[in-house]
């Protein structure tokens, strides 16, 4: 007998007491919890996102489409001469003010090469206001998961209000489980030393979120 059959057999014997006419999944699970917490205008939801991002030590900027390239240039310049990585589908106008010699417009081939890159600029799939979370789903403006992981500085652009949802349940509705997802709530952190939160372990130690709208 294979282990698969053995385990499934054990499960079935263990559940011998469960009657045949059990309620279905839909009947068994009550969804009495809220779809979102509190009532907010769209502007207030964006404000809450900014607050919660900042609360977990992300640096938040607000700008409009016209000013965005200049802001990105300033944020990159503030970190000095460096390699900047962008995913293949990033809107080219976002980087139009940044020095074009400074970025690679391609996916870097090995983790060691990625480690030489200082900053990365991406878009996102959506942002969750109640938890201060941005979610990446590997779309062309976000790229492979590793490019937002190995560099030490991540600039993420969120289009407001259309990419902002209030809550986790609203986010689940809009996300595609078939894509590899990365949920990011502030820069890398640890609570492993005396259960106190310290920012900056393996992921980017600086997370800058630009709310554009």
């Amino acid at each position: 007998m294979s282990s698969r059959e053995r385990i499934l057999g054990r499960v079935r014997r263990a559940l011998a007491d469960v009657p045949g006419g059990e309620p279905s999944y839909e009947e068994a699970v009550g969804r009495g919890y809220l779809r979102e917490h509190g009532e907010r205008s769209i502007e207030e939801t964006v404000e809450l996102l900014a607050e919660n991002l900042a609360d977990y030590r992300a640096i938040v900027h607000r700008t409009d489409a016209e000013e965005l390239p200049l802001l990105i240039m300033r944020l990159l310049a503030a970190r000095g001469p460096q390699y900047v990585l962008v995913p293949p589908g990033l809107p080219p106008e976002w980087m139009s003010a940044a020095d074009p010699t400074r970025f690679h417009d391609r996916a870097v081939s090995t983790p060691h090469e990625l480690d030489k890159v200082e900053s990365v600029v991406t878009g996102c799939a959506l942002a969750i206001a109640e938890t201060g979370t941005i979610v990446l789903d590997g779309s062309p403006d976000q790229g492979r998961r590793r490019i937002t992981l190995v560099p030490d500085h991540h600039i993420c652009v969120v289009r407001v209000p259309e990419q902002v949802v209030s809550s986790v349940p609203q986010a689940m509705e809009r996300l595609n489980p078939a894509r590899p997802l990365t949920w990011i709530s502030g820069p890398s952190a640890t609570s492993d030393i005396e259960l106190d939160r310290v920012e900056g372990v393996h992921g980017p130690r600086t997370l800058e979120v630009i709310l554009v709208g």
């Binding site: 919660n52 977990y56 969750i128 109640e130 938890t131 201060g132 979370t133 590997g138 998961r145 489980p177 078939a178 894509r179 590899p180 997802l181 990365t182 949920w183 990011i184 709530s185 502030g186 820069p187 890398s188 952190a189 939160r197 992921g203």
Partner: peptide, 15 residues
């Protein structure tokens, strides 16, 4: 005790 932990990864097979 966080609203959300810094990183959550989900993956479905290989990409």
């Amino acid at each position: 005790a966080e609203r959300m932990n810094p990183y959550t990864s989900t993956w479905t097979g290989t990409t």
